Simulated scan of single mutants.
Amino acid sequence: MEARIVVSAVCIFAPDGRLLTVRKRGTDRFMHPGGKPEPGESAAHAASRELEEEVGIVVGPEALEPLGAWIARAANEAGRDIEATVFAAPGTYDPAAVHAAAEIAELRWIDPAAQPDVDLAPLLTDHILPLLARRP
């Protein structure tokens, strides 16, 4: 069995409660902004860096709220699992001010309380959306 893919991801919310999802070029699943840490980089630092690179949102690692860590099926690498540390960014963000950059092909804001779309990553459908449904 191949080693898990270690990633950091960030939940970004719009003022109306929608959650930002991104689709990377060459893939068909939507997921959180985020990615793999560089050597020696903490999960929070990786999340902060990836957030700025992928969607232009600047949030220091110390400002990210840890939501948890999960193991889920990798969305875009068949037969692999990810080990994801997930954070929430503070406050809310205007969808018009968030832009796709780096390897991001498309942004989509979703209602976390709605029926999950079939093209969402397993981390979202299996772990994050149920977690968000339980939050006040």
Rank of each mutant, 00 (worst) to 15 (best):
I110W: 03
E38Q: 15
H45L: 12
T21S: 09
R108L: 14
V58H: 08
T125G: 03
R25H: 13
H32I: 09
G26H: 10
A75P: 05
I104G: 04
L123C: 06
L67A: 10
V98S: 09
W109M: 10
R18S: 15
A44C: 11
A102P: 00
D119R: 02
E2V: 13
G68Y: 09
D16P: 02
W70R: 07
P136C: 06
L131P: 04
A75Q: 02
E53F: 04
H127M: 01
S48P: 00
P136W: 07
G91N: 09
I104K: 00
C11K: 01
L131D: 08
A47E: 01
I82D: 02
P112M: 06
S48C: 02
A47G: 04
R80A: 15
G17S: 11
A96H: 08
A114Y: 03
W70T: 13
P122C: 07
A43I: 02
A100S: 09
E50A: 14
P33Q: 06
V58M: 05
L20D: 07
V6I: 13
P90S: 10
L120E: 06
A3Q: 15
K36C: 14
A101E: 14
R4M: 15
R25S: 14
G91L: 06
V7E: 10
V55W: 00
A121T: 04
R108P: 01
I57Q: 07
E38Y: 14
I5R: 13
D126E: 15
P136F: 05
H99V: 14
E62V: 10
P116H: 05
A89E: 08
M31P: 00
T21K: 02
V86E: 09
D81V: 00
E77Y: 04
R23S: 07
E2N: 12
P130L: 08
G91D: 12
A72H: 02
D111C: 02
V58E: 11
D111R: 01
F87R: 02
V55A: 02
R25D: 13
D81S: 10
F30C: 05
V6K: 05
A46Y: 03
R23Y: 07
E2M: 09
V58F: 06
L64V: 06
A133P: 01
D126F: 03
R80S: 13
E38G: 13
E103A: 12
V58I: 09
P66W: 10
E53N: 14
H32P: 07
P39N: 12
E103C: 03
T92W: 02
A97Q: 15
D16S: 09
P90Y: 03
H99G: 10
E77S: 07
A3L: 12
T27S: 12
V86Q: 06
L51F: 02
E106T: 11
I82A: 04
V59T: 05
P66Q: 11
P136V: 11
A3P: 09
P95C: 06
R73G: 11
L67R: 13
W109D: 11
R80D: 10
P33T: 09
L129A: 05
L129F: 03
G17L: 07
A105V: 04
I128Q: 04
A44D: 11
D117C: 08
A101R: 14
W109V: 11
V98R: 03
R25M: 11
L19S: 04
W109A: 10
D94Y: 03
S48W: 01
A63G: 00
P95A: 09
D94V: 04
L51S: 06
P130M: 08
E83N: 12
E53G: 03
R23P: 03
R80M: 14
E65Y: 01
L124M: 08
V98W: 01
